[in-house]
Design a protein around this nucleic acid. Structure first.
Lengths: 186, 186
DNA sequence: GTCTATAATACGATAGAC
DNA sequence: GTCTATCGTATTATAGAC
């Protein structure tokens, strides 16, 4: 796959995790990525919607992988999930308060405005929920419980990201990590 | 206080809980509110930032009040918070998947772009966290625990709103409500 | 206080040369 | 594949009449 194409997608992720969908312009993506300006519509003939949908989807796949690889042994979901969230907390602070993924902002902005992007966001969230669920299954949770907790954990992390970005501090995410660990260790 | 002014703020809340900050234009606010077009900059001389900051702040105050009044007796925080979230779940579905408040979307979009709106979002979230905390204190939680859980609950609700909007279903919020109740009943 | 008209700018998208 | 130039349409904000 083209290098430039990948780089445009990565830049889109980086910008949208700070500014969201409407707050990020195509001119900004071109400029920031350093990609040849004429090539944007060559690689993404369907424009901004296509770029965003692909960026969201790719970001979801990468985040899910990070959850899966959290603890290789897989015997302790509580610790794996705890560490995963602490990593996001650090990232928020070291990146100038980026969200770690474009998903949170883009999902909110486009939920009722673009069917295509909304579909990509659903798929991305389902990947995250499933990754958490698998971790919990490995640790001995029942199927129903693992499924519901997968949703619960995803919601809590997303909300923690919003609070940490708003307060310009990783602490809300750290509080979330701490209490999720207690909940999952019981 | 002016009736028109209040109506402009209310309309801004309604639009931004669906479309966010950048997705909502001033023209749209004027048109939707039916307010006299010439009066927008009369009541809000500092423009969109001022309108948004005030809308966010007002919305935070109203939501905090709804949490406080959830259960008048105040003896059962778990049930009060559970019911509060179920109400949001219903609202998301009956409103065509609005967020219940402009806070979630606006906070994400403006966290690093507008200091003024960011400050309003912080104050609004602090109001929510405090409202949850007070409910927990009334139910006998220790001060430290009530404080941390106030943050945890706020994060979980905000994340639940994102998931429910994305999936076009109140069910993620209902899952959140269920497991929060279990957590708080122990 | 409210109106219309418009300034000034940014946006997404496209055309056509090379 | 990549370029520049530009179209058409949004946006926020302001000016000036009434």
């Amino acid at each position: 796959m083209s290098n430039i194409r990948e780089h445009i997608l990565q830049t889109t992720c980086n910008l949208m995790e700070k500014q969201g969908y409407h707050g990020t312009g195509l001119n900004e993506i071109v400029k920031e990525s350093g990609a040849p300006k004429g090539s944007l519509y060559h690689y993404f003939p369907e424009g901004k919607e296509q770029i965003t949908a692909e960026a969201v989807w790719q970001s979801g796949r990468m985040t899910a992988k990070r959850i899966q690889n959290g603890v290789s042994g897989g015997s302790n979901a509580a610790k794996a999930i705890h560490d995963f969230i602490l990593n996001i907390a650090d990232h928020v602070e070291t990146s100038g308060f980026a969200a770690g993924s474009p998903l949170t902002a883009v999902a909110m902005e486009t939920a009722t405005k673009s069917e295509r992007i909304n579909l990509a966001c659903r798929e991305a969230y389902t990947l995250l929920e499933t990754a958490f669920k698998e971790k919990l299954l490995e640790s001995g949770f029942t199927k129903t419980k693992a499924e519901e907790l997968g949703t619960f954990i995803t919601a809590t992390v997303e909300g923690g990201i919003i609070l940490s970005r708003t307060y310009h501090s990783g602490n809300p995410l750290r509080t979330v990590a701490k209490h999720l660990k207690v909940l999952l260790s019981q």
